[in-house]
Nucleic acid binder design. Structure first.
Lengths: 181, 181
DNA sequence: TAGTATTACGATAGACGTAACAATA
DNA sequence: TATTGTTACGTCTATCGTAATACTA
């Protein structure tokens, strides 16, 4: 038993026809027939009565159908959860910026984040280079944005991964240097 | 995504170890690793954090786990329904017997049916050979039991299939001839 | 005859185990 | 070093489509 077979089963039950189910699923007729045959062999009973002009559910098929529907429904629910949860950046990032940059950068950042990573919380600290460097080193800040060109020291952390990919492009376009711990 | 992968996922999540899950499922370690990798690739996010000493669920994995559990639970429920429904004989069978046989045969029959086919309803008609033969021919009776030896005409019907396999042995033991339409 | 389901067959893809490798406590 | 997870490779099974067959209105 697998989800593909159950999907085929439900569709055939609804359409009353293997060939129409095959067209809907865009697979060969023979595959529909075999998937049903596999289920019936595994379960030891016929799901459909073959009338020669389509198929009709047997008593057994009628018993199984609602349970199979619930199973596929739960499968859909799982897929939904996956789609809206997978790859979502989440967590809190502590960012330090220069006072002179805050006015221009923060609005951009929040707009970007609200679209591309709504689950990310932001803690912004204003300060000058020396102070920011110090807080970066002590771990109180996850990343800082300063307007001097230099090498970016990489000490990969979760928090970095969150903002890095989001900000990197925008930062480069504004000729900023992103230094991160 | 398939049920096998989800089963593996849930077991690994509970045990916190791929190797222990592999032993439990009696499959190769590498297969567990690959099944998880397949899920992660399909879903675009990591389910586990690899610690080098087992694994721990990521945020994503924690979101998915309960939904996967519901899915597997529904799969079990489906299997249960299948097991207790597949191959079950059900329906109503119209049987004709000789008055002289009713006393001996009916108690046996009902006991047998209640154990081996509780879903089968029985309509019993008493009568003599000629009458029973007539009703058999007209379709009002599905099968008759008479105490003369003769060839059994087979015109396979659903109703016949129901009682035939149940009664055949008992009937033979009592040297009865079962004729069915 | 037209529409339907089943069966046969060959090609492709996927699952699986073994074993070597990498990484961690 | 022992235990764990990952990767590579060969084998084997299963899936799938095409096409031929059988059945019914």
């Amino acid at each position: 038993m697998n989800l593909k077979q159950l999907e085929t089963f439900m569709l055939v039950a609804n359409l009353g026809s293997l060939s129409r189910a095959a067209k809907t699923l865009d697979i060969a007729q023979s595959l529909v027939s075999r998937q049903l045959a596999q289920l019936e062999a595994e379960w030891g009973d016929r799901l459909f009565e073959r009338t020669g002009r389509g198929v009709v559910l047997t008593d057994f098929g009628r018993r199984v159908q609602p349970e199979a529907g619930l199973l596929l429904g739960q499968a859909d629910r799982l897929q939904t959860v996956v789609k809206e949860t997978a790859g979502v950046l989440a967590g809190t990032v502590h960012v330090g910026v220069l006072p002179s940059m805050a006015r221009h950068l923060l609005p951009l950042l929040f707009m970007d984040l609200s679209v591309r990573a709504p689950a990310v919380r932001l803690h912004v600290t204003e300060g000058f280079s020396g102070s920011l460097d110090e807080q970066l080193g002590s771990g109180r800040l996850d990343m800082i944005v300063v307007n001097r060109y230099g090498a970016s020291t990489e000490r990969g952390e979760d928090a970095l991964a969150l903002l890095w990919q989001i900000w990197l492009k925008a930062a480069c376009e504004q000729h900023l240097t992103v230094r991160a711990s």
